[in-house]
Design a protein around this nucleic acid. Structure first.
Length: 567
RNA sequence: CGGGGCGUGGCUCAGCCUGGUAGAGCGCCUGGUUCGGGUCCAGGAGGCCGGAGGUUCGAAUCCUCUCGCCCCGACCA
């Protein structure tokens, strides 16, 4: 490709609307343009890069026996009603009606359509297992699209679905995907981690997320490199920081004391002189419209996901102050387990075996001291606590750190959720009908591009991995007016193409500085500059990442770059 | 949905408070100049100031409504 014929509208300044780096650079480097909130047009550079990403995904999916299909993005309501998700998806689903008033939606994921397809086709256990996938546009009416291509309303997703006769088969399909995903993200040049993910309210199913560390991300994960542990914060477990002081284990009776206007943990710590670890935090949550009193150590936070798992509740929300007043006869800030009979009491595991703690008295402006879990109140103990900075790995005690990440892939053992609700069954060896067990596996295609930019950029622009860069090498004749330089550029371009390199020749009549700036902005990993040293048969090969360069004989230049890319 | 910010040539922004003929830089076009890190000079095109209504002799500027975009939060299969 010749640059003069390629549409690359680079901008000198960052567009005002962009805040995260990948968004700024995608706009500045002329990769994308925005049409509306969360809706983008992909210009030639983005399209080239995205096609390369898709090709890598395709090759690795095919390698595990995946079969590519393409399902409709426009879905009838019926299949979604069958699975129950027509209602569950709520406002996140784009819905429309056809001319006859029939309800349709734009697909936000394809479990339903895939299951519907499979149940019409697959009859026998002999046809299993199957892995079916597609790379397709998904539509989600996000409440708040943001961060450029990271959270959008229309995006490309590779979604695959496995169908197996038995759970052991699902394990195999899942493992195949895990391996394939690792290969895909490695080939895309990303630095990523696979972490345990929350598996939803059904429980039992396994799930992993593939994450790239980035401040632009929205997910927090806890990682411990030395223990090889990583988990989404929703799911993560840890060893908490030990209480600041040992408990007085004398058997003491609870004793009410006055705490005027002391509501928060911080205020109580200041008021009583007792460390937060010596306090019980009382949080009232509503799960599926039933109230629960959740008790945590003063310095801990409730994990809504763990609360949901502990109670089995699907709809989870904090109680309203008015509800609390009604149930406890006191306002938040003076709550505790004492005398609570009208709702279940859940206590975090860190409270088990503690003695003589401080908690609210369920009486405004009063607290109780000397409250001992198990003696002064009974509670069901669960892991309810969100892992916090400073915690250590549960088994090894090695430090955990909490990092912000972008989710680029998610693999999930679905189990029987869709096959059961939608009736996907096959005959087994004995001619008995058996419900098929499924897995579903997603990759956000644009997020790979974003993550690569977030990971690899500097003040000059992007520094794309060679495997997914729009071009692998740019040939930059310092001046296209010099006939010798121009001829050498064109010759070198031919040599690169002959070696199978995806090359771009900057044939524009621009000053060299401008060409260098543009090439670095759009992130082409290698640049061959033809200029001053041409009379000696020398050109310069620059590596974008780190901006190191080497003088190479012009006859060797193409092969030299090919060599660099292969490594 | 709650809170905040912003809409002025393609891009970045000034002008608005205190109403009076719409500006700058970059980009674009023409001519010249220059040619290894976003050359320099000269000339030129391009905007009914997001939209609607109102106040006023007069509105980019003041008021009301509305649309859009961004950020924080809520939400997130």
């Amino acid at each position: 490709m010749f640059w003069s014929q390629l549409y690359v509208p680079t901008l000198r300044e960052n567009p005002a609307e962009a805040e995260v780096v990948s968004h700024q650079l995608l706009l500045r480097a002329g990769y994308v343009r925005q049409l509306a909130a969360g809706i983008y047009s992909y210009l030639p550079l983005a399209q080239r890069s995205l096609l390369k990403i898709q090709q890598i995904i395709r090759e690795e999916m095919d390698a595990i026996g995946g079969q590519e299909m393409l399902l409709p993005a426009l879905n009838p309501a019926e299949v979604w009603k069958e699975s129950g998700r027509w209602d569950v998806m709520g406002d996140n689903m784009f819905r429309l009606k056809d001319r006859f008033g029939r309800e349709l939606c734009l697909g936000m994921t394809h479990e339903e359509v895939m299951t519907s397809l499979a149940r019409g086709e697959v009859r026998s256990y002999k046809q299993l297992p199957q892995i079916w996938y597609q790379i397709q546009t998904k539509f989600r009416d996000e409440p708040r699209p943001k961060s450029g291509l990271l959270r959008v309303r229309q995006f490309l997703m590779k979604d695959s679905y496995s169908f197996d006769l038995l759970p052991a088969g699902l394990d195999v399909s899942y493992e195949k995907h895990r391996v394939a995903y690792n290969k895909i993200f490695e080939r895309c040049g990303l630095k990523f981690i696979a972490v345990e993910a929350h598996s939803g309210a059904m429980g039992g199913s396994q799930s992993h997320e593939f994450m790239v560390e980035s401040n632009a991300g929205e997910d927090l994960v806890a990682v411990c490199e030395s223990a090889g542990y990583g988990a989404n914060l929703e799911k993560a477990v840890s060893r908490p920081v030990a209480p600041a002081t040992a408990d007085d284990e004398t058997a003491l009776e609870p004793e009410e004391f006055s705490t005027p206007n002391q509501k928060t943990i911080a205020e109580l710590v200041a008021f009583t002189g007792v460390a937060a670890t010596g306090l019980i935090k009382s949080v009232v949550y509503v799960g599926d419209e039933k109230p629960y009193l959740c008790l945590l150590r003063g310095d801990h936070q409730l994990s809504e996901t763990k609360f949901s798992s502990a109670t089995g509740a699907v709809e989870v929300r904090p109680a309203h102050p008015a509800e609390i007043q009604d149930w406890f006869g006191a306002a938040p800030g003076s709550l505790g387990p004492a005398g609570v009979k009208n709702m279940p009491i859940l206590a975090d595991l860190t409270l088990e075996g503690r003695h003589n703690l401080i908690t609210g008295a369920n009486k405004d402006d009063f607290h109780l001291r000397n409250v001992t879990p198990g003696e002064d109140f009974t509670a069901a103990f669960h892991d309810l606590r969100q892992v916090a900075e400073g915690d250590t790995h549960l088994e090894t005690g090695a430090p955990l750190k909490i990092v912000k990440t972008v989710e680029i892939g998610h693999i999930f053992k679905l189990g029987y959720k869709y096959s059961e609700s939608m009736g996907l069954k096959v005959s087994d060896q004995d001619g008995k009908e058996v419900t098929v067990i499924m897995g579903s596996y997603g990759i956000g295609v644009e997020r790979i591009l974003c993550a690569a930019i977030e990971l690899f950029h500097d003040e000059n622009g992007m520094s794309m991995p060679a495997s997914i860069a729009p071009f692998q090498v740019v040939i930059t004749p310092a001046s296209y007016l010099d006939p010798a330089v121009k001829a050498a550029g064109e010759q070198l371009y031919k040599e690169c193409k002959a070696l199978g390199l995806d090359a771009l020749l900057d044939d524009r009549d621009e000053r060299p500085g401008m060409k260098f700036k543009d090439a670095e902005l759009i992130g082409i990993p290698y640049r061959i500059t033809i200029g001053k040293k041409l009379p000696n048969g020398i050109v310069e090969v620059q590596t974008r990442r780190g901006r190191t360069s080497a003088d190479v004989a012009i006859s060797e230049a193409a092969a030299h770059v090919a060599q660099l890319i292969r490594v």
